[in-house]
Amino acid sequence: MFRKTLLVLLTLMISISFADFSFASEAGNKRKGKYTYRKVYESCQKRGAVETAKPKINPDAHTQAEWTKIFKEKKFAEFGCAEEWSKLSDEQLKDIYSYLHDHASDSGTPAKCN
């Protein structure tokens, strides 16, 4: 009986972690996200709203949980360039989310936006 419970628990745990994993990886295309993210700031700079085309927030500025929260609630104020952000499609947002999430400060590969 104990063994069976353990097995069930284990299966549950594994499937949960899998579900979590697939959420992160299927959420979007992080490579495309990186390009889109940088493009936002390029066009933002072009209209003169920011000084440099370098995005002001790096992926490692937040933890994965924080990124998830920001994108769930669509609170993009800290990114600036609101005009460009408002034009992004859900798919593009998902891509950007994947990029930022996968390189968050507590991810395996925290990154600056270079």
Binding site: R31, K34, Y35
Partner: peptide, 15 residues
């Protein structure tokens, strides 16, 4: 080095 910048480049060409 990782696929990050090369992937970004791929999507830049697509665009």
């Amino acid at each position: 080095g990782t696929g990050a910048r090369s992937g970004e480049s791929f999507y830049m060409v697509q665009d």
